[in-house]
Simulated assay, not measured.
Amino acid sequence: MPQRTLLFVLFDGVQSLDVTGPLEVFGGAEQHTPGTYRIHTASLDGGPVRTSSGLTLVPDGALDGAPRPHTLLVPGGHGTRDPDPRLTGWLRTHGPDAPRLVSVCTGAILLAAAGLLDGRRATTHWAYCDRLARDHPAVTVDPEPIYVRDGHIATSAGVTAGVDLALALVEEDLDRDVALAVARHLVVFLRRPGNQAQFSAQLAAQTARREPLREIQRWITEHPAGDLSVESLAARARLSPRHFARAFREETGTTPGRYVDRVRLEHARRLLEDTGDGVGEVSRASGYGTPEAMRRAFVKALGTAPAEYRRRFRPAPTRSPAPIP
């Protein structure tokens, strides 16, 4: 198996976790399977950089003297707000030569500024998707997924999504056993599917200000198979159905029905990904009642049926991995 050289681009204002998260994943894979990855870090002039949190990172050298990478990884951070033209120029020149080009968080802004995302689908941190789309109309920005693959280019959402993407790349380069060993060592999920939303239902909606409504949000999440009609939820909040529906929308930014739909879909996806429960059992546990009702919800929201979703996103069972040395 050929050794892959990974080049991490460093710059002032970089987000430290955008660098160290993926680096720990690839470094863990190298420890598990020596000779797999050669990791190199570089800044424009080879000097230390100060991260957005104040941490100083010392690179291995300058970008111009760095080894030609198989994977060029560009992290994000405050330093992408006003990109250094020398950095975007370097990326414009050398980025196309990399067999695999990866960005974490707002690193996608640097790739876009270098013209490397034109005509491609990409994502970034949810708070910067509008900016990316506005400033770079040639890029198709998808604000939903935690990471997006378009050919040899992969872009990811904020911070921890870089770890998910790195684990997916390790699984692709080596195998699932190595990726699982690294994930267990770092105590993270092996693989959140790339199309998983950046926000859970609870985070996507605003948290209600009043305790009765916050309690209703918690109740919905904990009881997706329960009676979650407006009338039932209103009675639990001790409000009239009309008052409850109006107050819920004002405080959360969505209607009770849409919130329930998203919680149930999220719950069903998690069961399909993480368990061997049958589609009928998943549909009942998630509050759909019947497989057909769940199928309609999946097709409407995701464009795929539950059984096909499971085939695409639930890994096949494998043997237990060897521990990381």
Rank of each mutant, 00 (worst) to 15 (best):
E211Y: 05
L132T: 13
A138Y: 04
E281C: 09
A62E: 14
L271V: 04
P145Q: 01
F11G: 09
G119F: 12
L233A: 14
A168V: 00
P325C: 07
S52L: 00
A245R: 12
L228H: 02
L10K: 00
G303M: 06
H94M: 04
T51V: 08
R242S: 15
I220Q: 05
R121E: 05
H152G: 06
L302N: 03
T88C: 06
G13S: 01
D12L: 09
Q3C: 06
G287Q: 01
V139L: 08
T80I: 10
V279H: 05
H267W: 11
P323I: 00
S53P: 03
P315H: 02
D261Q: 10
H125G: 07
P48Y: 04
I216P: 00
G61I: 15
L55N: 05
R184K: 13
A66S: 15
R319G: 15
P75R: 00
G76H: 06
G226C: 06
V178S: 05
S43G: 06
L63G: 13
P85T: 11
G47Y: 04
L233E: 10
N195I: 13
L116E: 13
D64I: 13
G47T: 14
F244P: 14
G95H: 14
V263M: 00
D130G: 09
C105Y: 04
A301G: 03
A133F: 12
I324V: 13
P321T: 10
Q196D: 05
W219V: 08
A122K: 06
A181C: 07
G287W: 01
R192N: 09
W219E: 08
G47N: 10
P241V: 12
R81C: 08
R270I: 14
T88W: 01
I220Y: 00
G54H: 12
E24F: 01
A235T: 14
R296V: 14
H243N: 09
P96N: 03
G47R: 12
L110Q: 05
A179Q: 02
L44T: 13
R310S: 04
P323C: 07
Q217C: 01
Q206L: 09
